[in-house]
Design a protein around this nucleic acid. Sequence first.
DNA 1: CCAATCCGCAACCCAAAGGTTGCGTATACT
DNA 2: AGTATACGCAACCTTTGGGTTGCGGATTGG
Lengths: 110, 110
Amino acid sequence: MSDPTGRVFDALADPNRRFVVEALAERETATATELAAELPVTRQAVAKHLAALNEAGLVESRREGRETLYELTPGPLAAAMDWMASVGAEWDSRLARLRTHLDSSRKRRS
Amino acid sequence: MSDPTGRVFDALADPNRRFVVEALAERETATATELAAELPVTRQAVAKHLAALNEAGLVESRREGRETLYELTPGPLAAAMDWMASVGAEWDSRLARLRTHLDSSRKRRS
DNA sequence: CCAATCCGCAACCCAAAGGTTGCGTATACT
DNA sequence: AGTATACGCAACCTTTGGGTTGCGGATTGG
């Protein structure tokens, strides 16, 4: 799965990971232990989630002394939003085409 | 998991399901067998995916004679996009607050 | 220097997810 | 009526994913 959009959706599919993303959107940085304190799971679980988010390009890590700071990099969110927007747009334009087609046939009939 | 946004992300996490969504965005309706013809999986697998998409509110099914037609209902996409937008907005405003703070301290220093 | 943190790595567990096959049933075609 | 098509349901298999525990290695503080 090298598709970047797919990795983003996969990353956001987990509720704990979404919580982490929300938390990182408010604080500027956080460590795995800090985040684990607000979640019903262990530090290692959070670390795995952060690794997954990093894999998706949503988070970057930097080591500061004995602790590792994680920071949000919301760039890939835009790509995922683009995908949804394009699906919605295709759907809309299909509806529009259908509507004009119905209009023209109605006009022809009247 | 009653959170609607979570269900949408979970639904879009699977590549086959995303393909189905894309396909349904172009055609207006499709059956499970039609979609399975363009995918490397069986009809039943596609049926399960369509059930998952329906669970997420992204698809609706209607029975027409001996075949079941599936149609896209992209409403929930908006909610998911809202979530991403709000995360991005929080991130942006945090950056803005940080920037003004730096500006003011620089002003004080000068 | 020693103790307390903070982390990463590895092994392991278990439930869930994606997929398949098999079968029964309803609808259409001839 | 009989055959072919399209579906749903259920059992089953296998992999993945989220989670935990148990270490051992760095880094900070007394």
